[in-house]
Design a protein around this nucleic acid. Structure first.
Lengths: 158, 158
DNA sequence: GTTGAAAAGTGCTGCGA
DNA sequence: TCGCAGCACTTTTCAAC
């Protein structure tokens, strides 16, 4: 039987503090984090490796301002399905629509709840009428347009 | 009158391609992007600096798996305000609740639409009853719990 | 505006405690 | 398990095209 390297798979306070700093700014150098938390750079490295292996860290992504790139409309969609059992098939088809940035299976009136980002109202109408309405199993949708995004952040750890 | 350095403030195809690569993986080295797009590393650097100055790039953040950190519940909240004019004051108070990760001023039945992340059902109940209901101007809320997050991605450029 | 290479800074790997 | 020091790599800068 192969011997697996013994490893502490618990997340302690130091891990949380490292994550908190990097969630705000993923480009913070390890040496700076080390100085702030009063440990060595090597320790930060070891902890990060552990967190990656545990799957706690899914990756790092660049945050862009959609409006500056010509995406002016953010909308939320409540989607009614004919039958709940059609969810998986509907998701498979909805994944092909690039304007959908988030999709959830939810409790309440709707089966599916989605967030979509479009260039303008014409673009939104096209996506709704041509792309989304043609997905099999979708009965009808309700649309809410975001007029202002006042909060956009990550969870605050501990 | 001070002379401001002449600079091209338009976003061309090269910028879009750089952003596309970095939005998928913010840790991609500049040299690798340069090789892929057949330009020099220096050019990537100049373009990135321009995009940062333009405010197109808001930052880079680490993506974590909330469930692995003990945050098991994602919920959406439709919030009714007594008067629409109370929006700004409500937002100021809602910003102090760390569990709220996203908040929009929307068209439709509700004035405010929010996304919140909690540890468990008890935690959710606490946030709803104690924190959110005590914000001035809030009449009532409707809650939708996400049972599955099937899509979570950024906009696809061009 | 772009290039290519040199300079500065950061991340990674062993050895020692 | 942690800290230190050397090596590899990336980012940044800059003169030249």
């Amino acid at each position: 039987m192969p011997h697996r390297k013994a490893q502490n798979l618990e997340i302690d306070n130091l891990d949380i503090q490292i994550l908190s700093i990097l969630m705000k700014n993923a480009t913070t150098p390890y040496t700076e984090i080390a100085k702030e938390l009063i440990v060595s750079g090597g320790t930060i490295h070891v902890r990060m490796k552990k967190l990656e292996e545990m799957g706690v860290i899914k990756g790092a992504s660049l945050e862009v301002d959609p409006q500056k790139l010509g995406y002016d409309i953010t909308a939320f969609l409540g989607i009614y399905l004919e039958k709940g059992s059609q969810y998986q098939e509907a998701v498979t088809q909805l994944k092909k629509i690039p304007e959908i940035v988030e999709l959830h299976y939810t409790t309440g009136s709707w089966s599916i709840f989605a967030k979509i980002v479009c260039h303008d109202t014409n673009h939104l109408r096209e996506v709704l009428n041509e792309n989304i309405q043609s997905v099999s199993g979708i009965q009808r949708t309700e649309t809410f347009i975001s007029l202002e995004e006042s909060i956009k952040r990550q969870i605050t750890l501990e």
